[in-house]
Nucleic acid binder design. Structure first.
Lengths: 363, 363
DNA sequence: GTGAAAGCGCTAACAA
DNA sequence: TTGTTAGCGCTTTCAC
């Protein structure tokens, strides 16, 4: 949380609801749920537990009149199957673990949303884990699979948390040559398309604010950037490439470094929109205008990108589809159904907005 | 996903990894995990299953040498307890459900992050559910408690998904007079503080873009806004209040409505930062400057608020603390420990940035 | 079509 | 201190 050091700070206080300072946890209501089990239902219906089980699982194998008796008893008893017992017995949990480097990241939030919908549709639950990109946390959560707490894992980062084989799908940032199925964007082609767009506008000095060194996603985007430069016969100046960590602050700092160069770039390519928005702030602080003095582009097309001033040219990704596809592939793995493809590549879209323009002639 | 209708669209394609079009799900590795159970360990150690169980649960009740034998056997067998069986037997799951109206919302993402940390620290897992604020989805997920899939629920919206008693904590947007413990912000006081700030700057026509009608959070913030106006002897003009749904678009539309009024407001209070950022775009489109022509404020202090142009004056909330406190209170409920307080109110902080200024004298 | 009964892996009496 | 054993609630043979 932010330091709440402002003098306007309101200290925590307790509502005066007339309750004593310490109250019983059960106060106001009873946490206990009336329990009812399959045996109770069987007794009420005058049948065996097996018949109750069958009525619920495969009703067609039970006489209609028996079925009615059982259903009536279920109703009467307020019976709900104990899923813990069901899972225990059937040795599957119906839980999928999704390892997310940062759930606060707007792009990942969309991925999760897509995954959640697909999971729900397939009658699975999604266990969401914010790993902060740390391997030990990822390993710990992945362990849920071996503990029989989950049936499989979706990993959104290029790291394999398993030492042993396990049902896993790797999406978004994928491990090169990994053993698990993947869903990815052609980051190289996307970065190339974006760089080509800038080159077409006449830019020849194009700064690049990358992601973390270790990220394959960053490596691909850098490669695409270099592909476009090379194709246009432009030398790649290493001074025009700097590192970031995908945060607003990193974009701000990266832009500061770029603008301090003796020969400034005329365009700046940030590897995600957060960094582009951070860079935008710094550029304005420098008294420069976007796109008149400097073109600026991002990657991801987060909702805020369209609301920047100027609105940001970026690469749109079908974020929800990453999540949805990952879930569907993982379930196929778990249920041992054949996968149509082990390595799916999703489409991107170059989204042109107001942050890019033809390079200034005066330069 | 966004419509990928741009001609730049790259159609989905499959990496040419030399694999056949349809591949076996087990291809490249084996999903099966070598199973080992407590009986196997007991056999290896030459002890009973009870001793193995004890060695793992309360080692102090086992002779050191027996313990060593068991530990060696555990190692040798690669034994991991089947948590499904543990849970089934002990009738608790260690799962907490958190119902989130929209995980893509930056504020909720922070709440979740805090909850996740607290859950992990207490050795619970967090089941995250994006409910889109829909009651039927909330009810469905809440049902996990009665299905023995989860021990309790954290609800971030003012709706009680239970008909029967159940362990639940209500945070962020709380139900008035509800039966569950709550963690909330004093929204009324916060909105009042913000409005007072604007009044101190000389504003007397202050527009308000609210949240959805049904939200108590909105009702409290409106009350705080009115408190401040009344205290300053300013009539509350109903034309200056309009509805939104906390989205960027709603802010944009709300601002459009405000600016079309015959007598424009000189300040605009949006009930969250997303709407303020949406409003900011519209205000600029109108050719007006913030804060020179119009002061603008938000609520929540999302990261982007500091990176707006101008940076946004807003109310900071300790979002992570909401999650953390909610988890701690819920665990107390579940474990039937006494709660120190049933209704906790967290502090806010008025965060002054560049989007507010003294009202223009010329008006 | 239905019932009896075994047993999933583990914990917790109770016995020794 | 350690072992024996009875289940937790359910599914699933296997008889009837």
């Amino acid at each position: 949380m932010p330091a709440l050091s402002n003098p306007q700070l309101q200290v925590p206080k307790i509502s005066g609801d007339g309750q004593p300072a310490v109250s019983s946890p059960a106060e106001g209501f009873d946490n206990e749920v009336v329990l009812s089990n399959i045996r109770e239902v069987a007794r009420l219906a005058g049948v065996s537990v097996a018949t109750v089980s069958r009525t619920l699982k495969s009703p067609e194998r039970v006489l209609p009149e028996t079925r009615d008796k059982v259903n009536a008893a279920v109703e009467q008893a307020g019976y709900r199957p104990n899923l813990m017992a069901v899972q225990f017995r059937s040795q599957r949990t119906g839980n999928l673990v999704i390892l997310v480097p940062a759930i606060a990241n707007t792009f990942f939030a969309r991925v999760i949303s897509g995954a959640q919908q697909a999971a729900q549709a397939a009658n699975y639950r999604l266990l969401l884990c914010d790993t902060q990109g740390r391997e030990e946390i990822e390993r710990e959560f992945a362990e849920l699979v071996h503990n029989h707490q989950a049936d499989g894992v979706i990993q959104l980062r290029a790291f394999d948390p398993f030492t042993e084989p396990a049902p896993m799908v790797n999406a978004c940032e994928v491990i090169q040559g990994g053993r698990h199925p993947t869903i990815s964007l052609d980051n190289r082609a996307a970065a190339k398309a974006m760089t080509e767009h800038l080159i077409e506008l006449g830019h020849r000095r194009i700064g690049l604010i990358k992601g973390p060194k270790s990220s394959p996603l960053t490596r691909d985007r850098v490669a695409g950037y270099q592909d476009a430069l090379q194709q246009a016969g432009i030398d790649c100046d290493p001074a025009l490439i700097c590192h970031g960590d995908f945060s607003l602050q990193a974009g701000h700092d990266g832009a500061a470094a770029m603008l301090a160069l003796p020969e400034r770039p005329t365009a700046l390519f940030c590897e995600n929109d957060e960094m582009a928005i951070g860079a935008l702030k710094r550029i304005k602080q420098e008294g420069l205008r976007v796109p008149e003095d400097l073109s600026l582009v991002g990657f991801d097309d987060i909702p805020f990108a369209a609301y920047c001033d100027p609105p940001l040219t970026t690469i749109a990704q079908p974020a929800e589809v990453f999540g949805q596809q990952a879930v569907e592939m993982l379930i196929a793995l778990i249920e041992k159904k054949p996968l149509v493809e082990r390595h799916v590549v999703l489409p991107f879209e170059l989204t042109l907005r107001g942050s890019t323009a033809v390079v200034r002639q005066g330069k």
